[in-house]
Design a protein around this nucleic acid. Structure first.
Lengths: 211, 211
DNA sequence: ACAGATATTTCGGTGTGCCTAAAAATGCCC
DNA sequence: GGGCATTTTTAGGCACACCGAAATATCTGT
């Protein structure tokens, strides 16, 4: 049970719990992968048989230690490749996803290692997401969603969801980028560079801050 | 009918007639691709139905114009990627083949274009093989096999087959490399750098000279 | 020219990953 | 706590690219 398809399942299960705790259900997995629910049932059964996920019928899907290791390897590949495309080929950070999605399955470990070396072993990708090292270790910092942060909370922007490109552009124009420090005033109003700025409401669940 | 597998068939058919005129037979195609002859029959049937190759039952396989265009695109991808791996990642020319074999199917046109640009639109790969341009045009120079060249023929080494790594090493030690000019004395004896050298007999059908 | 060797095709089958439609289990709401 | 909607699984199938075995065509040598 080692295939590009299997790796995509593992990676997707992993990503779902990276910024939130609920385990992923088959239907959500199907939606994220763009396949029919029945396809998920089938693949999950195989992954469970190989000890990569745990799954009781009609229940959620969780990675085992072995599955997580594989998922982290894929996440590493994906994020390293994205970083590389941006920094060496001038891709926009919003243009790298599809290319990385394909290359992550086909670049050899050797080439990946050379890319990693050339980039100086980066620990974060252009979206601010942490890149696991070759051993699968990943930086994890305590975080809060902007929308869930108490008033007056001050934190560094850890991550901005890449789900909505329009929102991303707006945030960019407002000067909100990964690494910036902001103080929450109320709701989506924050202090950034000393200026008080009203962010789009959607930013509430798209921006993660250090806790 | 567009798939990695189909592209591999087309590329292999193309390569077979690049330095020699006999059209490829199904069994040779099967051997080069490492698949069973029956698989070739099947795939060739599909390629013929799509107008990419011409084939009469029990006969040889030939590319149509459309098939050749596709084959040239694959050859371009393969050779550009090989060149890139050698010149930017320090791969040995004997180590690039497998990686290129995979990446040629998965790198986007856009990334390929950037690689091409970065390399300065190279026209030859590290083995001396010509790289077709984006339009499928390829440098073709009249050539003779060393073993078929008349005595006193003088020509530039156009290409050395990469089939036999041992032979390659020996030729390298004798100073015979792509680009060198040699004069044929008799059989495998040639003048190289003013010195008369006896090449291994196998060089007769592994070294191509300008006509 | 014909027998035997060789090459090619046909035939039935495999594994992977996907699908739709139908059946079964679960969860929720009154 | 029972009925209905939702979720998940089962069942049957499809396309792709491959395989081995058997049948058939072509080639070769005497």
């Amino acid at each position: 049970m080692a295939s590009p398809a299997a790796d995509d399942y593992l990676k997707t299960v992993y990503s779902h719990t990276e910024w939130q705790d609920e385990a992923i259900t088959p239907s959500v997995l199907a939606a994220k992968l763009g396949v029919a629910p029945s396809s998920v049932t089938e693949m999950v059964k195989k992954l469970a048989a190989s000890g990569l996920v745990s799954h009781v019928p009609y229940g959620a899907v969780r990675l085992t230690a072995a599955g997580e290791a594989r998922a982290l390897a894929m996440v590493r590949r994906h994020r390293l490749i994205e970083t590389w495309l941006v920094s060496e080929f001038g891709y926009g950070w919003d243009e790298v996803h599809d290319e990385a999605e394909v290359l992550e399955h086909t670049i050899s470990d050797r080439l990946l290692g050379k890319i990693d070396e050339r980039l100086g072993h980066p620990r974060f990708d252009p979206h601010g997401d942490a890149i696991p090292d070759a051993g699968g270790h990943i930086d994890r910092e305590a975080f809060v969603l902007l929308g869930a942060a108490p008033a007056a909370h001050e934190g560094r922007v850890l991550r901005v969801s890449d789900r909505d490109p329009v929102l991303l552009r707006v945030l960019d124009e407002l000067g909100l980028a990964v690494g910036r420090t902001v103080r929450v005033e109320a709701g989506a109003r924050v202090v950034l560079d000393g200026r008080s700025v009203e962010l789009p409401a959607a930013a509430g669940d798209a921006v993660w801050l250090t806790a």
